[in-house]
Write a protein that binds this DNA or RNA. Structure first.
Lengths: 188, 188, 188, 188
DNA sequence: GATGAATGAGGCTTCATTCAT
DNA sequence: GATGAATGAAGCCTCATTCAT
């Protein structure tokens, strides 16, 4: 975690720092390994010393700097909207903004990235579903609708950043949380 | 004279056909112009006769084979769910599945693609908002919530395909429509 | 001589006009035939209709728009400096400034250009020699020196333009004329 | 390991050697980088390892293999012709004949070449002027004429080679030196 | 004669990857 | 382990030239 060119933050870490920045900026394909080395301040050969193939840099980045957390879900019984809002603020993804960008952007590029994104999606859905079940008094509501709600919320959480980047349109997760809560809460 | 394979759609059209297929399949960056020419059954140089730079193929594809329609919105008063479902089935985008894939996938690649996607997003939101206003009896509901509903529906429509492709998780637009309708309808 | 796109100044002439401008500007190699056609306002194919190969445009330009005149030399007996100055102002080359530039610039490119330049050089030398012989009272001066004087004057006349273009250094032909005249005149 | 032909001047040097030969022979534009690599006995890619763009080969050649010397001028008082002759034999340019050819031939191609040629011209003029001032007893001669003499001599020195190559006409610098000296010497 | 689509060779350049030191 | 020279496949693009209409 000690980035920057400290005494020796470790060449490997510096390489990953550089790659993270560049992949997030211009994309994996458009980033030559030479530029990674340059930004990291290490000789070109060293990159291949630590990462035999270029794709391994991406894979390691996703493996080591991206964690889909698995903790127990917090839910406030009787407050589904608050529960979802809280989930929105604690997306079960431990990663820098740059890594998040990489995850969404390069999901096509390599299977391992895609899988990580898939796991993230599943986890968000799982949490949302669980949280809603807990938050709603009698969870006897329509199971299908609850599933749709969870999936919708996950989609919004996952793509809000891309959407904003690509179309300039902001979505407020809290408003969506409130909307969904309302849809389910009114079942009574 | 007729040594071409297609009924002679014209070389330019064949090039665009080939590019559409390949860009949708492997992505813009991963598709060499030589492969486009090969698949189109034309010599390599002809691609550059019609499209000075490689990116122009993508731009022309988006310009000519992608239309964000602007027609009036259909709405069934009293049936917001049905109205949204209908919108889901008539996304205001006239484009082949391949083109749709390209639009979502290459939005980073070039401004013109991004803009088209942005316009699509805006149009979906506009339609959803309008349809809901019409469908809901007294549209006096919370304006902010209606906005959130429209944006959420647009996000789901736009990203459902990508989500499925990347994570394998399907979202049923109809279920989301019903969910949203319920959220708004229960305001009364 | 009726350039410009008059009713039909003749496509051929317009092509040569365009080529003259472009060759003088960017050089022969750097000028694609397509740009010639474009500037001439004719279809690309027409260039090759009139000039089978690209080099033929250059050759025709030199052949038709470059004349090394052959007229009799004017000399003012007793005034070698004035005689040379007059020669400087009436270089035996009938050509536009653009053509002159082309002649000097592309002399490497093709034999026919080189030959034309060679003939020009010879003619200037011949004239200078003859003029000096006439202008000097008793031409009994050193023949070798007279030859050197003529060659020097020719070199200055031919390269003054290039020198200025390339190095920014101006040479005044009149001053050189005066210098040379002095060198020869003082033999007495 | 020693599969190279030269005593291993280093790949970079061999590339420059090859380029020097080829540029002097056929010209910069007409020399493909592939041929440079081939003649140098190195793989094509190595050329771009040392010289990112093709033009950088030319620039480096001019920068490293062309020196416009700046030393003090030698002059023989009372012998302007000998002084100029000596200058002709010691042109203030340290460069191989091939490099000299390149310098004159490609001055259009790139600014850095042009500048070098300009500096050479200035230096020759400076030297010629200074040498003549020293060589002439009372330097009270006409300053303008002295300037013209220096410029003329520089023009002849710089272009004698091109002239010969292009027109086949030789100029003897010694004869020109003698001519100029005479012009100035007779001022008395 | 006039036109512009068609052709394909070849140029410059990029870049992942290897490897000797 | 660390280094940067070496390698060569492949990509994009240019362009003179041909030719059917």
């Amino acid at each position: 975690m000690d980035r920057k060119e400290a005494p020796d933050a470790g060449a490997r870490a510096r390489i990953m720092d550089a790659a993270e920045k560049l992949f997030a900026g211009g994309g994996y394909d458009a980033t030559p390994t030479a530029r990674i080395a340059e930004l990291a301040g290490v000789p070109k050969g060293l990159v291949f010393h630590y990462f035999p193939r270029k794709i391994d840099v991406l894979i390691s980045l996703v493996d080591e700097r991206t964690v889909v957390t698995d903790e127990e879900v917090e839910a406030f019984p009787g407050d589904p909207a608050g529960t979802l809002s809280r989930l929105a603020r604690r997306i079960p993804l431990r990663a820098s903004p740059a890594m998040r960008r990489i995850l969404f952007r390069e999901a096509d590029t390599h299977r391992s990235v895609r899988e990580r994104l898939g796991r993230l999606n599943s986890e968000i859905i799982r949490r949302a579903r669980f949280a809603l079940e807990l938050a709603l008094p009698g969870s006897r509501g329509d199971a299908a609708r609850l599933e749709a709600a969870a999936a919708t919320f996950a989609a919004v959480l996952i793509y809000q950043e891309s959407l904003c980047l690509l179309t300039g349109h902001h979505i407020d997760p809290d408003a969506v949380a409130e909307l969904i809560a309302h849809a389910l809460g009114n079942l009574a």
